[in-house]
């Protein structure tokens, strides 16, 4: 099987693992506990590809029909 970089596929939006201080900032801005964020599974192909660990927060930037660019955050869970 040919191994492909799924991150380069046009349907896969941009995933970035946030640093500790960035997480604090985001959580504070939204006034949420990490558990109140949407979740993403640890065995999600993209999570595996970017090497995120349980407890990390991932910033996802996708193209949006209504807003152009749209940013959302997800908590990595096992």
């Amino acid at each position: 099987m040919v191994k492909k970089d799924i991150l380069k596929h046009k349907l896969v939006p941009d995933h970035v693992v946030l640093k500790k201080n960035q997480i604090v900032k985001v959580l504070k801005a939204m006034e949420v506990h990490p558990e109140q964020l949407p979740k993403i599974k640890l065995d999600d192909p993209v999570v595996k590809a970017i090497g995120a660990k349980e407890g990390d927060v991932i910033k996802i930037t996708r193209n949006s029909q209504t807003a152009g660019k749209f940013v959302s955050y997800r908590l990595v869970l096992g």
């Binding site: 939204m30 109140q36 964020l37 949407p38 949006s64 029909q65 209504t66 807003a67 959302s72 955050y73």
Partner: peptide, 13 residues
């Protein structure tokens, strides 16, 4: 429960 479903309503608010 305060769980975020969408960070901005309809993505464009």
């Amino acid at each position: 429960r305060g769980v975020v479903i969408q960070t901005r309503y309809g993505e464009d608010g």
